[in-house]
Amino acid sequence: MPRWGELTDAETLSRLPQVAAVADQVAADLRTWVLELRRRGVTWARIGEALGITRQSAWERFSGEE
C-alpha cells in the first residue's frame, strides 16, 4: 500500500482507473454471490445479517426491483 505522502498528485491520479476497475469487479462479484444465495432460497434477512446491513437494505441494494 502506498504512503500517500510519497505519491505525487499525478501518480495518485494515474492509479484511480485501476482502483475504480477493482471496485467495479468487487461490486459485480458481490452481486453474483448474493443472487446465488437468493437462487438457493436464502432470505434477505440472512444476507443482510451476513453483510452487516438490514434485510431492507440488502433487498434495496441487490434485488434489482424499485
Rank of each mutant, 00 (worst) to 15 (best):
V34A: 11
A23M: 06
A58F: 04
P17L: 03
Q18F: 08
R55S: 15
F62W: 03
R46K: 14
Q25E: 15
E60N: 14
R40D: 15
A10G: 01
P17D: 03
D24T: 04
S57F: 00
A58M: 06
Q18W: 03
S57P: 00
W59N: 07
D9Y: 06
L13A: 13
A58G: 05
E11T: 00
S14M: 02
R61D: 02
V19W: 04
A28E: 15
R31F: 00
E36D: 14
L37K: 14
A50G: 15
R55L: 00
T54Y: 02
D9K: 11
M1C: 04
G64N: 07
L35E: 15
T32S: 13
S14H: 06
Q56F: 09
G64H: 07
V22E: 14
G41M: 10
A50R: 09
W44Q: 06
E66T: 14
L37W: 14
V34Q: 10
V34M: 10
L35M: 14
A21F: 06
L16P: 00
V26A: 12
A20W: 04
D29P: 00
A10Y: 05
R61P: 04
Q56G: 03
E60Q: 12
F62C: 01
D9F: 09
E49H: 10
A23C: 02
A27F: 00
L51Y: 02
P17N: 04
Q18D: 13
V26N: 04
G41C: 11
W44V: 12
E60D: 14
A20V: 07
L51H: 00
D29W: 03
E11D: 09
D9H: 08
P17Q: 04
V22T: 12
M1I: 02
A50S: 15
W4C: 01
A28S: 13
L16C: 03
S63A: 13
Q18I: 09
E60G: 00
A50T: 09
V19Y: 08
D29S: 12
L30F: 01
G48V: 07
A10W: 03
V22S: 08
V26Q: 12
I47T: 08
V22F: 10
W33E: 14
W4Q: 05
R39M: 11
A45Y: 05
G64R: 10
Q18S: 11
S63R: 06
L37E: 14
E36M: 13
A28I: 05
E66A: 15
R15L: 11
L13T: 05
G64C: 09
R38G: 08
R61G: 02
A27P: 00
Q25Y: 03
W4T: 09
A45D: 13
D24Q: 11
L16R: 12
F62T: 01
R38I: 07
A23N: 07
A23H: 06
G64E: 11
G64P: 12
D24N: 10
W59E: 09
E60W: 10
E66G: 14
M1V: 02
R46Q: 15
G41P: 10
R40E: 15
L35W: 13
I53F: 05
T43L: 03
